[in-house]
Design a protein around this nucleic acid. Structure first.
Lengths: 247, 247
DNA sequence: TTCTCTTAGTGGTCAGACCACTAAGAGATC
DNA sequence: GATCTCTTAGTGGTCTGACCACTAAGAGAA
């Protein structure tokens, strides 16, 4: 970033390919505020003509931005047809994390530590400012998990829903989106680890109790307690599932 | 996620387009461990033929994964030519954050809060386990910022380098990549806010002092102090730059 | 007024061509 | 035999033009 050298200072000349130029053109409009959420892009053919590139180049750019949750395309004609500025960061974050966890770029431990940071804060925030509806929303997955002899996959997904509900109650959308992405990116590992547990009912019982404790702390507005309980819960689960780091 | 309804249970049938099928095919290989970092993909034409799709569809998929930092393509022939599995999450994270901050999907405050969480932990980790070289690496941007009458852009970039160096010293790659992405995604806002500051030298002086304090705490292994100093530093800077949330 | 059907416009997909670049290998030269 | 030069094959990069599938608007009939 910072260059302290003296001399010619040959700045890197952005050697961009066609589709990157198109991406830049679209990003520039977004950065300038000319395009905001919901606005339509010109039809692919028009955009290609205006930018003097082929339609294929435009499509590659659209695909990239689409995968980042920034664009949304629909076929057809009239009202809802065409490509629009969207904002769905969650799926993009999930794919990014999942792939890079798999490529061992991020260790599972590292991701779990990030999860603890985020969910501690979210729990504390939720305790401070969660609305009654938000607290009620947490109760749905909570009671689902109380179901007798629930299969492990459904339990895991309800578990995820509970933690995501807390993050959403906290109000910080970056926190909640990251929380969701982390859970989703570790889902297959979680399921596998759950499957390998011998005394499942014992583990489920512990998790249930801890969940109710967290919920109660949030309901009563005890921020520090909620944060500590969440951390203990995550660390406990991680150590009860040693297979988490394998695959 | 969790569905408690009974009845037909119409599972969502992944209605995928061609390029998504190709993405899945590649992702599956990665998830299965058949493809790991450094491995080559078949040539685009071969892959298209094997998957029974057009080359355009394959290219769109490659472009998406490339933008996620998972693939890397080079033209030519022989050794280094072709498309390879890579792992460069940083640029992808940055683009993702930058765009979604711009689209007001994430508020600047929310991002700053995330930054505080991450950098608190990184500073504490760095204080506990940073190597001598890592501590030395922080010193480079630190001394650069001590330069008299440094222009604000260079100062900002050195500032970024310093904080990223701390995050890297902490050892958690998810933390450091997120830290880098957050700084990069807010860069233009930072520069604009810096430009609007009237008494620049006064602000720079405060930042310099705080940076040295943080560096010293890390060097001396005082984890809690380092974390607190970092948080105070970020909050102080944010309140000294009220224009940060505008654009 | 209501319904039905055509039609234009959109993204989705494909086939085929050519270009730019790179490294390996054939060949010439010393 | 060693070295250099040039051809060549294989790769991604780009473009063109075509056709398909789908949708809503609009023309036309009832």
């Amino acid at each position: 970033m910072a260059s302290a050298e003296s001399g010619p200072a040959w700045g890197p000349v952005a050697r961009n390919s066609t589709h990157e130029l198109v991406i830049e053109a679209i990003e520039d409009q977004i950065m300038a505020g000319t395009l905001t959420v919901g606005d339509p892009l010109p039809p692919e053919r028009d955009l290609a003509a205006r930018l003097q590139v082929s339609r294929a180049g435009v499509r590659e750019a659209i695909r990239v931005l689409e995968s980042h949750g920034v664009l949304r395309s629909s076929v057809g004609s009239g009202r809802g047809a065409g490509t629009f500025i969207a904002s769905m960061p969650s799926a993009a974050l999930t794919r990014l994390l999942r792939l890079h966890v798999e490529l061992a770029n991020f260790q599972v431990d590292e991701v779990v530590e990030a999860r603890i940071l985020l969910e501690r804060s979210s729990a504390a925030l939720a305790a401070q400012r969660a609305s009654a509806e938000a607290v009620e929303a947490m109760r749905v997955p909570l009671t689902l998990m109380d179901t007798e002899s629930l299969d492990r996959e459904t339990f895991n997904d309800a578990d995820t829903d509970f933690h995501v509900a807390i993050a959403q109650a906290g109000g910080n959308r970056l926190f909640s989106n990251l929380t969701e992405a982390i859970r989703a990116s570790l889902r297959s590992r979680h399921l596998e680890a759950f499957r390998k547990v011998t005394d499942w009912e014992a583990l489920a019982s512990v998790l249930r109790t801890e969940h109710h404790g967290i919920h109660e702390a949030i309901r009563e507005g005890r921020a520090d307690l909620a944060a500590d309980l969440v951390e203990a819960h995550i660390r406990g689960a991680a150590s009860a599932l040693p297979d988490l780091t394998e695959h």
